[in-house]
Amino acid sequence: MIEATGLTKRYGPTLAVDDLSFSVSAGRVTGFLGPNGAGKSTTMRMMLGLDRPTAGDVRIGNRHYDELDHPLRTVGALLEAGWVHPNRSARNHLRWIARSNDIPDRRVDEVLGLVGLTSVAGKRAGGYSLGMQQRLGIAGALLGDPEVLLFDEPVNGLDPEGIHWIRELMHTLAGEGRTVFVSSHLLSEMAQTAQDLVVIGRGKLIYQGTTDDFVASATARTVRVRSPQLPELKQALTRREVSFDESDGALTVSGMDSDAVGELAFAAGVTLHELAPQRGSLEQAFMQLTGEAVEFHTGEPTPD
């Protein structure tokens, strides 16, 4: 359980995070979305006590991060895989972290096995590929068997198998009742991973709720219909003043759900070959709802 209340961070004249309040519940994977520069990283860093809020606070299981006794046993985080000394081996990297929170050394080997790095654990981390560094970062997050996990762009540098693996891992962790909070730019990936969403733009909260509701609220629900008796079906729809588009021999009906379209077709004696409710994509919904909050539209990016 993570709770942010009125969280605000100001860097000079810029408000990076602006009066942000949201909560992340246990037992679900919650996606943290926002355009570049929306304040996602700053927010995650404040959760971990790395940056100090200008105002407001963020609590984990009702405590501030720096009040946690052995913080890594409560919160595991992968913020940037590169936070490893390049000349230190993976095992030594995890050993000092484990030691700092009184985590037994055997847990180091457990997590190395879990992320599939056992065979290279003694090699210097500087020689790792991005994907291996990412796995090492994930191992570090899991070290304390924590209740709360934060991941920032976890699939970065992973190959398809790795991406599949981390998605399953996050679902497993949430299934065990843990709180999993993931930020990512890959919306097609997040659509498969996150059940809940926290969406921010320009440091402000834009949405908090389930992924399904987010998509439904921002995109039109339509039904795709194919039929050998298309003219009859079109007539029936027109009589009910239902609007539709036609392309490639299929109708896209809007403003009527698939149940009703089915009933209507049956009443008109029309055989159906397809009756498929279409959902908008998370990407469409995101573009729709964050449109105004995107700081730099293509055409004018500036350095982060």
Partner: peptide
């Protein structure tokens, strides 16, 4: 300074907020 350079200072403060 290498802790700052390689970001391990953040891991350190994350593990030991004091």
């Amino acid at each position: 300074t290498t802790e700052y350079r390689f970001g391990t200072i953040r891991t350190t403060f994350q593990a030991v907020p004091n």
